[in-house]
């Protein structure tokens, strides 16, 4: 039986799709059979980040509406045999998804996969509701700024009251906090919320901190999940997240600004 993980946030542009791609790739590279599902119907992006946009023939909506089989719609990742992508439709809108239809797809995927990663759209409407409804665990992606934290709080409320587990009175969805686009220097200057501030407001366990980096943009543009960019801090940070998710004990990294060296302090370079 597969574990369903939703990557959600409420707010847009915080890194849900980047995280979905990297998280799913990481699990797959660790040997788990993983599928990542794009719930952002009408604004499909995941296939771009995964670099498979030209291979989308049938999509999630086609499967939900019975126009294609799951087998036809699943796209195998080019780098990893364990990873499959179920792309969203670019032409339909979010109303095309039904609760029963999505439930059937999740049930069918559960037979073949270890992990089902659901990439939620922004907002709290139908698309994001259906993305989180079937979840067993949630990764709440939050940027270190107040509006993002507020929206994450809202999503946590919905997870604990409207998800399938909540409605059926089962054990709660396990929610993890992932802070992305974290810039330790700006935190030290008081321009950004610190990890501790965010933890204080949301009070859920932290699964990782992804530092702000230009590598992420480059990864998106070239269609490579950020976790696969060798020797970058973003990739390292995502591997730490995977490790912690699988129960390893990893020390938190990339949360402190690098100490400036003696010469940098004197000559003011290094920014």
């Amino acid at each position: 039986m597969a574990k369903v993980i939703v990557i959600t946030s409420g707010k847009g542009g915080v890194g849900k799709t980047t995280t979905s791609a990297s998280f799913a790739s990481g699990l797959a590279l660790k040997g788990f059979k993983t599928v990542v599902v794009d719930f952002d119907i009408g604004l499909r992006n995941l296939d771009l980040i995964m670099g498979c946009e030209r291979r989308v023939v049938y999509d999630f909506v086609n499967v939900v509406q019975g126009e294609a089989t799951l087998h036809q719609a699943l796209i195998k990742d080019k780098n990893c045999d364990n990873l499959y992508i179920l792309a969203a439709s670019q032409t339909k809108d979010k109303e095309a998804l039904t609760q029963d239809g999505v439930g059937n797809v999740i049930d069918e995927l559960s037979k073949d996969f270890d992990y089902i990663v659901c990439d939620s759209p922004a907002g709290i409407e139908r698309g994001s509701f259906l993305a989180l409804y079937f979840a067993d665990e949630a990764i709440v992606v939050t940027n270190p700024e107040v509006s993002s934290v507020r929206d994450s709080d809202r999503i946590l409320g919905i997870l604990s009251s409207k998800s399938k587990r909540a409605v059926e009175g089962k054990s709660k969805i396990k929610a993890h906090l992932l802070v992305t686009r974290y810039n330790p220097e700006r935190v030290e200057n008081g321009e950004m919320l610190s990890v501790k501030d965010i933890e204080d407001i949301l009070r859920i366990p932290l699964i990782g901190v992804i530092p702000e980096s230009t590598d992420v943009l480059q990864a998106s543009n070239t269609g490579v999940p950020a976790i696969n960019l060798k020797e970058t801090i973003v990739s390292e940070a995502y591997w730490d997240v995977i490790g912690r998710f699988l129960g390893e004990d990893k020390e938190l990294r990339f949360v402190n600004a690098p100490r400036k060296g003696f010469f940098q302090r004197i000559f003011g370079g290094g920014n």
């Binding site: 929206d151 709080d153 409320g157 604990s160």
Partner: peptide
């Protein structure tokens, strides 16, 4: 016994 989150 649980947090009352934003929007609740």
């Amino acid at each position: 016994n649980e947090p009352i989150r934003s929007g609740m």
